[in-house]
Design a binder for these strands. Structure first.
Lengths: 214, 214
DNA sequence: AATGATTTGTTGCTTTTGCAACTGAAATAT
DNA sequence: ATATTTCAGTTGCAAAAGCAACAAATCATT
């Protein structure tokens, strides 16, 4: 099993066969879960797109991670030491599997006709999932430590380009959200994108970007 | 076993009794390890202080984590997706335990007169250690997403204050290093610290800070 | 105790960023 | 099909941050 699970092979069967799991539906802009209730919830996004966001005390929004079908999220992966409100927001209509970490590691007291074979698989791969989360956090830190908007943009573009093995790539969210992900002012970011275009460093067609240098 | 291990109860015994482990000494400013060689190394800092740092392509230094005695570090906890040079630098003379992740999970082919009881303990607690690492990463992200130096400083001070359960606390490194941790220019940070003092928001005596507001 | 290296503290100047405000385009809902 | 909301793109201006350079203080080493 890959860290980013194969839906066909694993999750669908899990959702259909293990009674110890909830399947829920969320509409666009609904909050799927918040990370303040110490529920140790584990979630798998089956369909749709969602963001893990933080709202600062002064209202500034910051996107921590972006999820697509097959991604794991939930409090269990994201224990935080500081007092801040984290929540997962549906960006499109979403279908989500929900179960708890305690449930996963503790005794399964419910009837589970497959003997929790799916729980066991998750258990075994929990550390792999954690490692994947760590990668995402490290990636974000790498970008946030860049000191200028230009470097943040280019750093992020390079990561997307490397992932796609192509000079061209689409950003996984709107430009407004990209600013929140890079943690910079949107208009300042737009200005910098314009500069990069004018200087012939990137090309942009909607959300499709191309790196012209290397 | 706590995530930040109790040296007396665990590590010292481990170091003395398990033959599958190396103990090494590093002088101040020496590089303890780099995260590019895929050695899956796990390290425990027995004595001294060290920083996990990244050097940008243009030379900008950035402190990711700060370690004191009892902390775990090493590639195994810090797998990164992007191409950047991470290294752990001794800030003082250090004593370090070294062993490998593969060794931990694979069969222990060496003689280990305690039957690798220590390895087993680590194995069991690996996910806890990972969670601790995640906390550290999340803390750093929380600070880095703040948009001004003032907010970064106050955010970090609040975390230190909360940890110590006191309005007064000492920063765990020099002001120069603090700037690298917050990923900002040192002189600009000093200016902002001065502003905070002048406005009666903080007090500062060397590396001892006090938050005057709440 | 003297020397050299590092850290702290400060300042002038320039560049970058954030803020506010607005327009047109695109998407969504009625 | 039209109204409404969201998103993209711009700009002027003010505030913040970075850069460079230097002196004073502190720390470390011989």
């Amino acid at each position: 099993m890959d860290v980013r699970v194969n839906l066909d092979d694993f999750i669908k069967e899990f959702a259909e066969n293990c009674e110890n799991v909830q399947r829920k539906y969320y509409k666009k802009n609904q909050i799927i879960t918040t990370y303040i209730q110490k529920r140790n919830q584990i979630c798998v996004l089956l369909k749709g797109e969602a963001d893990l966001v933080r709202y600062d005390f002064n209202g500034a929004r910051s996107i921590i991670e972006h999820y697509t079908a097959g991604d794991f999220f939930g409090e269990a992966f994201y224990i935080v030491s500081v007092n801040n409100e984290l929540s997962v927001e549906a960006k499109k209509n979403c279908e989500v599997l929900l179960f708890s970490y305690d449930n996963l590691y503790g005794d399964c007291k419910y009837d589970c006709k497959y003997g929790c074979k799916y729980h066991d698989m998750l258990k075994e791969n929990f550390s792999k999932i954690m490692v994947d989360k760590m990668k995402a956090l490290n990636t974000r830190i790498e970008i946030l430590t860049k000191r200028t908007i230009r470097e943040k943009l280019l750093g992020y573009f390079n990561i997307l380009s490397t992932r796609k093995l192509s000079k061209s790539f689409t950003i996984p969210f709107s430009l407004t959200d990209l600013a929140d992900y890079l943690s910079v002012d949107r208009s300042a970011m737009m200005r910098e994108i314009k500069n990069l275009k004018d200087e012939g460093i990137i090309e942009k067609d909607g959300n499709l970007f191309t790196l012209l240098t290397f």
